[in-house]
Design a protein around this nucleic acid. Structure first.
Lengths: 250, 250
DNA sequence: GAGTGGTCTAGACCACCTT
DNA sequence: AGGTGGTCTAGACCACTCA
């Protein structure tokens, strides 16, 4: 081990255990054992560095690994913290974020970033089966759990089904408004999910570094007549969610 | 810009565009435009470094971001390559890997790593509703698509339902064997999914770096009598798969 | 203003893959 | 044997947060 010049400082690590893996596993053990509790701040990178005699880059590598595991997260330029437990989410149910987060004893919060009437692009027109350029509601929201931003979503809705939707406050349950004000309920969901990187505007609103790992969920909801009632693109922090689905096989 | 000493080499980058983001976006554009095709090898890190005048660490940061996006992947100590398209997977269907990969025009491959009879741990005993210590088949497999290792799985099956299962070759479709030899089919699936880090043994078999991003899928399959026919833990490369589910809402 | 993480440099040695 | 990525060092300056 020991790359470069340092002739002093011996006691080379065993060749089969890398420094950053050792540090990673040590911190992980502390978290699992509860020495570091959920929400706790980790020692600063420079403290860890000096306590180890490693370079800061090596310390950071260990932290990145723990971040990938979902054990810790960073608040930009503020520090590293132990991650809260992920929320369990079943995207096949027609049940809002506010409902299932609350049901798990956590505190949901929704902030509407924008609500607009926009012309349908070609792709959206196909999805909604409307002419290209037809008006659609375009809603962006940021959602938090226990104060931590966990997802940004972009929802499109057909105003023909829910006229005036945009005039309601959307800082709560959209599902609730659709049902109670318009009698609209979905009977079928089509979902696509994949690990992704959080980029650009999404990264800024979630206040994570561009390129952080995330989970992309795209949901298309249909009503009993087969019409698309909602098209929703969600971008989650990767450590905030566990997907669970229970289905009969057709 | 320009940290540290270098007094020569000016033309500082604009403060609002970081070097690694610029390089990331440049390479991404080349991939999207098809200049770099699927399977192509990227220039080596040292070539990119000298072509840019950046340090190697900066180049690597750009590559990591592209890896997180799923655009490129590494073959250990061999190079960086443009990723193939992800496979689409519907874990709610009772349809084997071999079937859906082939249906998408790709070449599936399965390698059995081990097959054992093991005593049920407490957790497994609960899952299968058998006494703790009862015998269970424990099957580990590695699966490839077009020659690239994409997932390792660990399957547990109750021998009471499928005696002698282990004596078959499992390098093909397990689903097929269950159905044709034992008449066992699942009618219900319970699935949990979450982004994860690929660690330890899984990382070694997939030949990825420990800590690489992955997708964990745990599936419990039930037959018409409500018995657990299969309990399966899958660990996927994060860039190899897109989950798609289509369900009626109950 | 002190402290934090974020970016960057310019080297080095290593294990492993490729030819 | 030569080239690749993997790990590591020891610095630096920056943008930002927090008290």
């Amino acid at each position: 081990m020991k790359a470069g010049k340092p002739w002093w400082r011996e006691a080379a690590p065993p060749h089969n255990q890398l420094q950053y893996l050792e540090l990673r596993d040590r911190i992980a053990a502390q978290i699992v054992a509860g020495v570091l509790a959920v929400g706790d701040r980790l020692p600063s990178e420079r403290q860890l560095e000096s306590g180890l005699g490693s370079a800061r880059g090596t310390v950071r590598e260990a932290l990145f690994q723990l971040e990938a595991e979902g054990l810790i997260y960073r608040r930009d330029r503020s520090g590293w913290f132990v991650s809260p437990a992920p929320i369990s989410y079943d995207p096949t149910r027609w049940e809002g974020f506010m409902a299932y987060v609350t049901a798990q004893g956590r505190q949901p919060e929704t902030e509407t970033l924008s609500k607009l009437l926009v012309p349908a692009t070609e792709a959206l027109a196909t999805t909604f089966d409307v002419p290209e350029g037809a008006p659609l509601y375009d809603i962006s929201r940021l959602r938090r759990i226990d104060g931590r931003s966990v997802l940004v979503e972009r929802i499109y809705v057909n105003p023909a089904l829910v006229p005036g939707l945009i005039d309601h406050s959307l800082d709560g349950s959209l599902t609730g408004i659709l049902k109670s004000h318009y009698g609209v309920v979905a009977v079928r969901n089509r979902i696509a999910m994949r690990p992704c990187a959080i980029l650009g505007a999404n990264a800024e609103t979630l206040r994570v570094r561009s390129g952080s790992p995330g989970l992309s969920i795209v949901r298309t909801s249909f009503d009993a007549q087969g019409r698309v009632v909602e098209y929703d693109e969600e971008c989650w922090r990767h450590d905030a969610v566990t997907i669970s689905v229970d289905t009969k096989i057709s």
